[in-house]
């Protein structure tokens, strides 16, 4: 190194450290600003989020397939081992269900007759889109999944996502070929529900934990452990009558609801298209609480 170069480094080094430090602090401020913007305007990053998820979806799709295959193989092995016990159990269950089928047939006929008497307008049938779970990146503080179906497959924001057991959550963002599913357990999840037996309305909110919380019940109403919770269809967001969960505990601190669907092992889910508009669009100036509880 000659003298000239050395003198340049001597001057340049502190300038560079200063620039680096400045950049570091600038980035910290930028991150804090982004959080502030996101808090004030929750929809601000929706597009960017959907685009990033869309871009990574093919990778996740490819990687998650062998994971699913391995998991299926393990499941297969377990089933083979438990085949005999399972068979006896299923036979007993079938006998019981046959009885129920008889009851259901009678009720269906009766229901049909009564509806004809009343000129009842039935709820429209749903189209469903089946989607694979390709991403589960939530970590400790967010409960969302990434699905491999997006706007191209007919998925729209606000639609209900179900499995055979009940409601899983709803679509939060939609990209072209992927979408994000907000699970019931997420802190931002709010679902209008009612207690099936008493028809009392409420809202089920996520707590980031395993159980959900039943909020906003009318003051004089009671919930008891064992009560089934289903969607109410209020707010035009979700179809009515989807099973959500069962009341697990009632205490001073609130009513805990255990969801029917365990979201940790989902592979395939169904996205329901009832032709509803999804979530209601609130105009500016309305209650900000409502706009946030998407």
């Amino acid at each position: 190194m000659n003298d000239h170069e050395r003198s340049i480094t001597r001057v340049a080094a502190p300038v560079r450290t200063f620039a680096q430090r400045f950049a570091y602090i600038g980035l910290i401020v930028a991150a804090a600003m982004l959080m502030l913007v996101g808090k004030m305007e929750p929809a601000a990053f929706e597009r960017a989020r959907a685009q990033v998820t869309d871009a990574i979806a093919p990778i996740l799709d490819a990687v998650s397939r062998p994971m699913d295959a391995i998991h299926d193989m393990i499941g297969e092995g377990k089933t083979l081992l438990a085949l005999r016990a399972e068979n006896t159990k299923l036979q007993a269950e079938r006998d019981r269900l046959l009885q129920w089928q008889g009851v259901a047939r009678n009720l269906e006929a009766e229901n049909k007759a009564l509806r004809e008497l009343l000129n009842f307008v039935p709820a429209s049938d749903a189209d469903t889109v089946s989607a694979r779970v390709i991403g589960d990146a939530g970590g400790a503080f967010a409960r969302t999944l990434i699905l491999n179906a997006g706007a191209r497959a007919g998925v729209r924001k606000g639609q209900a996502v179900i499995t055979g057991a009940g409601l899983v959550g709803r679509v939060q963002e939609v990209g072209l070929r992927s979408s994000r599913l907000l699970l019931l357990a997420d802190l931002n999840s709010r679902v209008p529900v009612l207690i099936e037996s008493s028809r009392v309305r409420g809202v089920v909110a996520g707590t980031n934990g395993e159980t959900l919380r039943l909020l906003h019940l009318p003051p004089d109403s009671l919930a008891e452990p064992g009560d089934r919770i289903v969607t109410s269809g209020h707010g035009g967001a979700l179809p009515a009558g989807l099973p959500v969960g069962i009341v697990a505990a009632v205490s001073e601190s609130g009513i805990e609801v255990k969801p029917f669907v365990d979201p940790t092992r989902l592979e395939i889910v169904r996205v329901l298209d009832y032709g509803l508009d999804g979530i209601l669009e609130f105009k500016a100036g309305n209650d900000p609480d409502k706009t946030r509880s998407r």
Binding site: M35, A44, V52, I56, G138, A142
Partner: peptide, 21 residues
Amino acid sequence: GILHDFLSGLPVGVSALTFLL
């Protein structure tokens, strides 16, 4: 950090801030 926020569904900026620290 920003990509992690996008993918995980966390508020944008949280992971960026944490990772920067």
